Amino acid sequence: MTGPGLFVLRGVRRALGTVAARVYLTGCALLLGWALVAASEGSMAIVVPIFASLPAGLVLLLVLPEGDTTFLLSIVLGTLINAVVIGWCARALRRGSNPDTAS
């Protein structure tokens, strides 16, 4: 694979490799696991991972068709999208006024 597709995948991999993105992904995974266990008891705990994946998770929740698997898919994809954005922001802040596009 060559061209712009490889460039985008490399950027996503770098963004998800930052500490901030990994901490966010870990926290959201723990919240989702807790919510799935707590929701089996009839509580409204499943809304917590939706709030953690805002705004991308909510947009996907409204766009995707209704169902249990699409509900979980919207949370997971929203979390991944947010983690990429967090990673890109962390990399940009770390670079500061030194724009080094090669790293």
Rank of each mutant, 00 (worst) to 15 (best):
T2V: 10
G3H: 09
G3W: 06
P4K: 13
L6W: 12
L6R: 15
L6Y: 11
L6P: 07
F7M: 09
F7W: 07
F7E: 13
V8P: 06
V8E: 10
L9K: 09
R10S: 14
R10L: 11
V12R: 08
V12T: 11
R13S: 12
A15T: 02
A15N: 01
L16S: 03
T18S: 04
T18Y: 08
V19D: 12
V19L: 14
A20I: 00
A20P: 02
A20W: 04
A21E: 05
R22Y: 04
R22F: 04
V23A: 13
Y24E: 05
L25M: 08
L25V: 06
G27W: 08
G27K: 09
C28L: 14
C28V: 15
C28P: 00
C28K: 00
C28H: 10
A29Q: 03
L31F: 07
L31H: 02
L32N: 03
W34L: 13
W34Q: 08
A35R: 01
A35H: 01
A35M: 07
V37I: 12
A38G: 00
A38F: 12
A38R: 14
A39W: 09
E41Q: 15
E41K: 15
G42P: 11
G42Y: 10
S43V: 11
S43A: 13
M44S: 15
M44E: 13
M44Q: 15
A45F: 09
V47I: 14
V48M: 10
I50T: 13
I50C: 04
I50N: 01
F51P: 02
F51W: 15
A52V: 11
A52W: 10
S53L: 03
S53Q: 03
S53R: 04
P55D: 07
A56F: 15
A56K: 05
A56S: 15
G57Q: 04
G57P: 08
G57T: 07
G57E: 03
L58D: 00
V59K: 05
V59Y: 10
L60D: 04
L60H: 01
L61R: 08
L61N: 03
L62S: 14
L64G: 05
L64P: 07
P65M: 09
P65H: 08
P65E: 10
G67T: 03
G67P: 09
D68M: 11
D68R: 13
T69M: 14
T70Y: 14
F71A: 08
F71V: 01
L73Q: 04
L73G: 09
S74M: 04
S74R: 02
I75A: 00
I75C: 04
I75W: 01
V76C: 07
V76N: 00
V76P: 02
V76F: 14
L77A: 13
L77N: 01
G78T: 01
L80F: 15
L80P: 04
I81S: 02
I81L: 10
I81T: 05
A83G: 04
A83R: 00
A83W: 01
V84N: 06
V84E: 06
V85S: 02
V85M: 05
V85W: 03
G87E: 02
W88D: 06
C89E: 12
C89G: 01
A90P: 12
R91M: 11
A92L: 14
A92Q: 07
A92M: 09
L93N: 09
R94A: 14
R94G: 06
R94W: 10
R95Y: 05
R95S: 10
R95P: 00
G96A: 03
G96I: 07
S97N: 12
P99T: 06
P99I: 08
D100K: 08
T101F: 13
T101N: 06
A102D: 12
